[in-house]
């Protein structure tokens, strides 16, 4: 599937030599990725292969042990080496919080704020993090909610919404800060299977605005519909990377082939493989 990707443009997101280990066990091991504006990169792999950890390390929710991340050519977080040297464009001691609005993160469990209504969920970070005046934040939030088709839910609490609506709130909350990069952790896992097509279409339009998207998913049908490129992660390494259709239909690495064979029916399918 071809989208609005501009492969020639400077990458929106660069991940270089990222490493993360827990209790001495490397979970993400020397991962480098690059995503152009408007491009959707899918990350696939069996559970425990480090997909979610990679995503969290990119957003510095779990700060990487080594390697670095750039958003739009600017450092996102300290560029660490094993010696702990802070390099290139990142002042020591600078608070990563001031940068996080450049990467939107949509959690698998969404983690909406139950004490705020939908509008509050979408405006709060705008006013706290970007110091937008309340009317500006509200206007932005209402426009987003309208675009996502949940304008009439603005005054409701997250608990009153369906799973699909809750996810749209989470997406609106991330989009409200206008991040050039958006990370999605398993966006279809909590949804009814028939909604995956809708979500894929929605994420495509979001990418169409020139944002770079990284999507972790275990649903092959979903990544086939959505992603321009795929990276197959195994044992913390990117084992194979390339155009989505090529990876899914003609895997080169035997590990990827085994993974696909275990998950997908033996023929290419536009339907979610479940």
């Amino acid at each position: 599937m071809s989208g609005a990707a501009q492969p020639d443009a400077a990458p929106a997101l660069e991940v270089i030599g990222l490493r993360k280990s827990f209790a001495g066990r490397p979970v993400v091991d020397d991962v480098s990725l690059s995503v152009a504006p408007g491009e959707v990169l899918g990350i696939i792999g069996r559970s425990g292969c480090g997909k979610t950890t990679l995503l969290r390390a990119i957003a510095h929710l779990d700060p990487p042990d080594d390697g670095f991340v750039r958003v739009g050519g600017h450092a996102f977080g300290p560029e660490v080496s094993p010696a702990g040297v802070v390099r290139r464009g990142w002042r020591r001691g600078r608070d990563i919080s001031r940068e996080r609005h450049r990467i939107g993160f949509v959690f698998q469990q969404l983690h909406l704020w139950p004490h705020l209504d939908v509008l509050g969920n979408v405006t709060r970070a705008q006013s706290v993090v970007l110091s937008r005046p309340a009317p500006v934040a509200t206007e932005r939030a209402r426009a987003l909610l309208a675009r996502l088709g949940i304008a009439d839910r603005a005054a409701m609490r997250p608990a009153e919404l369906s799973g699909g609506q809750q996810q749209r709130v989470a997406i609106a909350r991330a989009l409200a800060l206008d991040p050039p990069v958006l990370l999605f952790d398993e966006p279809t896992s909590a949804l009814d299977p028939e909604l995956t097509g809708e979500v894929a279409a929605l994420l495509r339009t979001i990418a169409g605005e020139g944002r770079a998207l990284v999507v972790v998913s275990h649903s092959l049908g979903f990544v086939r519909r959505l992603c321009d490129r795929l990276a197959f992660l195994d044992g913390g390494h990117v084992v194979e990377e390339g155009p989505a259709a090529r990876l899914l239909d003609a895997p080169r690495d035997p590990r990827l082939a085994r993974f696909l064979a275990a998950l997908a029916p033996p023929f290419p399918s536009p339907q979610p493989a479940r």
Binding site: E99, F107, Q109, H111, W113
Partner: peptide, 17 residues
Amino acid sequence: PRGQMESGRAVGMTRLQ
């Protein structure tokens, strides 16, 4: 509920915020 602190951090709030 789990993840509340983290979701605040993910949108760029400091720990205190």
